[in-house]
Design a protein around this nucleic acid. Structure first.
Lengths: 189, 189
DNA sequence: CTTGACAGTGAACAAATGTTTACTATATAA
DNA sequence: TTATATAGTAAACATTTGTTCACTGTCAAG
């Protein structure tokens, strides 16, 4: 299989977080001429798995991307090579690593929007929230994860749970927004 | 700030998916002696942001990791430098990239386990499921995402929705498992 | 005032890198 | 059969790489 070497390369990258040098690929692919590697790499560049910017080799997003399959309800063979889209998880989830952090969720106040106890939430710091955003906030010195809302009559912002059993939270003194929830992830097992 | 350069480096890596060479860092950091870079890099190695394996530089997981903060209910300042854990999303979510793919979910049959319409699910191919796993399966030629169950009395496997409004699915002819759901992700906005 | 740590410069260099050119073997298609 | 594309080898080489050594200026602590 022609793909096998690419798989080896991907595994190498996954493990070492960098591409191997040509000499390293030599060993990796069990070849004995650097020129073989040179040709193979050039083919991958043509196929857009790798690219070269002023002589420096780096992987493209195609290199990392996982196939993203569509609608599961439609009866046709979704695993076919067609109708494939690709997605790189890290790029998809994290816009700005320097202002993002993860937060392990506790409590059941956000079950209505599918955020459960134990889920991990990606929070982007310091963003001014839009009405309706899920925010990490400190309301009267109490930390919480809620929906950011505006009361038009009272001209104040308040927080709302996504679970009918919790009442809306109006700040007595202070409502401070620390970040906006960009995504949730949940791992099974 | 001493961290600024590390931020620059992280951005470079995020963009180019590789570390810059020392000469490239020279420009990146606005320095004029390679030896300066050499020393800076060595400090980062000491601090475990980078590492060197037979002379080859690569980032550690600390380099990528986002801070993972704990229990939000507990009233103390969770954004403090302490009680920090770190997590690398890609590593956390994807064990084997070569057998994993993503699937955009449609339908409301799995809302009970917090999988909603539009969510993206990470599926690992060809795994033999454990009872209770969420599986991507073909039941009587129909594709679906359900919970894998075993009927002890009838000695057959069947599929169960995570939504009371859908009945359990017993295969008339064939139940074929294509993969196991390892994680869900949902992006807001 | 001095000492030492810290941050940076500059030059020199062996080793490794990516690239080029020329050649071989094998299989496939005309 | 004869081409011709594909996959690989081998050697040679300029360029770039990471590293070492010697040096300068600055700032804070003793």
């Amino acid at each position: 299989m022609a793909n096998t070497r690419l798989e080896i390369l991907k595994k190498y990258y996954k493990k070492n977080r960098r591409l191997p040098s040509y000499s390293e690929m030599l060993k990796l692919f069990n070849l004995s001429s650097k020129n073989s590697v040179f040709k193979i790499v050039n083919k991958w560049i043509d196929e857009n798995f790798l690219k070269k910017i002023n002589g420096k080799l780096s992987p493209t997003s195609k290199f990392f991307a996982l196939p993203l399959l569509g609608n599961i309800k439609a009866g046709f063979p979704i695993l076919a090579e067609e109708n494939k889209n690709y997605l790189t998880l890290d790029d998809y989830l994290i816009e700005d690593p320097s202002t993002s952090f993860l937060l392990k969720v506790s409590g059941d106040s956000m079950t209505g929007v599918g955020i459960f106890e134990g889920d991990i939430v990606i929070v982007e710091k310091k963003k001014i929230p839009t009405i309706g955003d899920i925010v990490l906030a400190q309301i009267d010195r109490e930390w919480t994860l809620k929906i950011f809302k505006k009361d038009r009559k009272k001209h104040t912002n308040y927080l709302e749970a996504a679970n009918p059993k919790y009442p809306p939270l109006y700040p007595l003194q202070e409502l401070q927004i620390y970040g906006v929830v960009k995504a949730v992830i949940r791992k099974f097992n």
